[in-house]
Amino acid sequence: MRPSLEIRDLHVSIDDKEILSGVNLTIQGGEVHAIMGPNGTGKSTLASTMMGHPRYQVTQGEILIDGENIVGMKPDERARRGLFLAMQYPQELSGVTTGNFLRTAVNSLHPEHPMPVLQFHKLLTEKMKLLDIEPNFAQRYLNEGFSGGEKKRNEILQMAVLAPRLAVLDEIDSGLDIDAVKIVANGVNTLLGENMGVMIITHYERILRYVRPHFVHILLGGKVAVSGGPELADELEARGYDWIKTEADPALAE
């Protein structure tokens, strides 16, 4: 079955301050959606809320994966329903190797079919190659002492190994040089298909030159202010965000 994600009238608060005020969005397998918008508009809040970060309270609305509401579920339960979030600031974990962590994750996602060690290593090696990652990566402690680029690449490696049905990439391009953006984009493109829907959250249109989105949504004031095709990203590049504030929602311009 083709995966589907539906966000309905989502309201989210942090410490009783409303950040998202009624977001609506639908993503199907095979589609790439870009979520854009200026800083502080709730893009990362949307990503963290979808994954179930305990700090974000959903005060209204639903997040449906294949029709099932995941609001209230723990992050691991959401992951087992196929959701993946490549994080903007991945955590560093001393003493836990990347390989050991990923194998634990793979076996947690499919507890009924634990993957034999050799098969896992084959999978890991193949995906590391795809992302141009050196082999000793798996033995290093998870993100500890990694450069910004290595951390982002590690997020995509995890996505490649865990094969989610719906992937959210939160600012995956920030802090990357253009070669790293290309490698990450290439990784995403290789994994794309009917069985995976992708949401790319980004501040810049740069990565969208390498991963072409089918839809672009502009988040402003905690809502989707404008949606369109890939041409919307080009327009943003040329004109910035201000015109949307006035044209799309005059109330926001004040």
């Binding site: 994954m51 723990k74 691991d76 992951a79 955590q91 974990l93 003493g95 836990v96 962590f101 994750a105």
Partner: peptide, 29 residues
């Protein structure tokens, strides 16, 4: 560290297993 716990759980790892990874990591040195 709740952020680390969240990170591990976001990959599908159950809370109990995530805690174990954190503890063994803590003791690894």
């Amino acid at each position: 560290n709740q952020e680390q716990l969240y990170y591990l759980m976001s990959r599908g790892i159950r809370e109990k297993d995530a805690l174990l990874l954190l503890v063994t990591g803590f003791l690894a040195t």
